[in-house]
């Protein structure tokens, strides 16, 4: 008879194994059939080819959209991180009347679907006579990322940091010096994390970009339009490339944070 402990361990292994198969199945299929030597990315697998990658890398519209996504992501995330930090600093360190209300208003966009935010901007920009553009998309992404950056920065404004700022004032630092020499350097690691999170969400955001762009589009919008051709190994190749780039960026960010963490220790 099998010992009960072993049976139990096998049971938990099955739970985890099943979960990982479920989680990896679509990605594995996506990547595998990006190398499909044939017109359909479904079994049977006909053997490897890099033809589809060649096609993707020759697709100017895709590359241009990828660059647009980088510009929109970096721009909106930088502004979101900066404004989020300033707001968190102001509300945490000064007794502003109605600060709970301001806090709530700044976090509110988190509870609203991207679709509604995008639609609201579309209607408003239309009424104001502003054309669809990448700038409009960047504004939309600023709206969705500002609450996150604000919350991340606010989490870094605890009593320990407040004491350090007080110590700086005691030593003669002006308010500006307190901000630039103490508060900002202390918050930097979490601001970097907020920027990365923000960029990731912007990079991957579809609905707002879909509603607010016409000709210059972002990467998710181009991929979306590729789906109209149905199942196609070229889409697999494009998706795999995006995946690879994302993983590289994540690994790079992890490395930066890990190095900073080690330096601080």
């Amino acid at each position: 008879m099998m010992p009960r402990r072993l049976a139990r361990a096998l049971g938990w292994a099955a739970v985890l194994g099943g979960f990982y198969v479920f989680v990896y199945l679509p990605v594995a299929v996506l990547v595998l059939f990006s190398f499909q030597d044939g017109r359909l990315p479904v079994p049977p697998f006909n053997g490897p080819t890099l033809a589809w990658y060649g096609k993707v890398l020759g697709n100017g519209r895709l590359l241009e959209a990828a660059w647009n996504s980088v510009v929109v992501g970096v721009g909106s995330s930088m502004v979101a991180t900066l404004l989020g930090f300033l707001a968190a600093y102001g509300l945490a360190r000064h007794r502003v009347p109605g600060r709970r209300l301001i806090h709530a208003a700044l976090v509110l966009p988190l509870t609203v679907s991207y679709l509604v935010i995008g639609l609201g901007l579309l209607v408003t920009f239309n009424a104001a006579g502003l054309p669809k553009s990448l700038l409009a998309v960047a504004i939309g992404h600023l709206v969705i990322n500002l609450p996150l950056c604000f919350l991340v920065a606010a989490a870094q404004m605890g009593p320990a940091e407040a004491r350090l700022e007080q110590a700086a004032r005691d030593l003669g630092a002006s308010e500006w010096q307190v901000l630039t020499r103490v508060a900002l350097p202390l918050a930097l690691p979490s601001l970097f994390a907020a920027f990365c999170l923000s960029f990731t969400l912007s990079w991957d955001e579809f609905v707002i970009a879909f509603l607010l762009t016409n000709f210059d589009v972002t990467l998710p919008v181009v991929i979306w339009s590729m789906l109209r051709t149905g199942l196609n190994p070229e889409t697999n190749a494009a998706g795999t490339l995006v995946f690879a780039v994302s993983l590289l960026l994540v690994a790079g960010a992890e490395l930066v944070l890990a190095r900073r963490g080690r330096a601080a220790r």
């Binding site: 199945l25 299929v29 990079w203 991929i223 979306w224 789906l227 494009a238 998706g239 995006v242």
Partner: peptide, 14 residues
């Protein structure tokens, strides 16, 4: 870390 749109497409493949 795949794009959201791509992930849905991948399920379509499956």
């Amino acid at each position: 870390w795949t794009s959201y749109v791509v992930r849905s497409y991948a399920w379509l493949l499956v």
